[in-house]
Design a protein around this nucleic acid. Structure first.
Lengths: 132, 132
DNA sequence: CTTTCATATGAAGATTTGCTCATATGATAA
DNA sequence: TTATCATATGAGCAAATCTTCATATGAAAG
């Protein structure tokens, strides 16, 4: 939290009063990560932001799987599955391993499990925030 | 992990061999959360999957802020900011509080901080997974 | 080599998303 | 009440996204 002297003031936003919260804005801007990092962060979460991919990640957290098993699990085309696996692999969340003609996918680290787990905690808490 | 008897077999996917991994698929399907939960989970992460919203969440993790302060911080329109705040509020990640004409937004719980923090950990690890 | 099988990929179409613009709402001041 | 200020919201457009279809690649079997 910011020191008291910089607490938001209620008269704000009119052209001549804009400087009132300029101080706070500057203060917070200093603390924000750089745009590139924020962009990468958003990009990472974007990967989690799709039901198909979440399902794949969940499945892979149980066992490594070949593409056709995943496709069958998702009841989706092999093609669609493969496209999504590419997204997951590009993001570094999953890796792959060849065994003959088959290619197995697996989670590369435990961040995936913990991120999903935190998200799961959030949605399973039925906490209503009725601030209107 | 699945018991050894259910480990993926390398001959899979041909029409007559499909049953080979049917057992694994069934096993994993039992362990997956219901579609609705997975959908909600993806929806939650979708909220984090945008640079603007990540920036807002990061900012609010420092201090509650009024809309115009956030808009100024993001160098974005008041309208665009307000639209995104609505998304954040609908997802339950932020709440709002009125003080005169001004409306202050704030984080509703610490899941936001921990989820972002986990994501940040992931992207700042320069771990190359070169499994092709 | 040729065929088959498991997977990958490019193009295309439908849907979703994030911003802008104009306007609405709701609280305060005059 | 009327004017003003902070914020909210609906419509519309451009860009991103996800799936399908057709086809390409690459390994193993014949």
């Amino acid at each position: 939290m910011l020191p008291n002297s910089e607490k938001p003031s209620s008269d704000c936003c009119s052209a001549n009063n804009k400087h009132v919260h300029d101080a706070i804005v500057r203060e917070i801007r200093k603390k924000l990560p750089h745009d590139e990092e924020l962009f990468n962060l958003a990009d990472l979460f974007k990967v989690f932001g799709d039901t198909t991919r979440i399902k794949i990640l969940y499945a892979l957290s149980e066992s490594e799987l070949c593409v056709c098993a995943i496709a069958e699990l998702l009841k989706m085309t092999q093609s669609a599955t493969s496209h999504q696996l590419r997204v997951l692999k590009d993001s570094g969340l999953v890796g792959s391993r060849r065994e003959g003609k088959t290619i197995y996918y697996f989670l590369t680290d435990d961040h995936v499990r913990s991120i999903i787990s935190q998200g799961y905690d959030h949605i399973t808490e039925d906490k209503e925030t009725d601030n209107d």
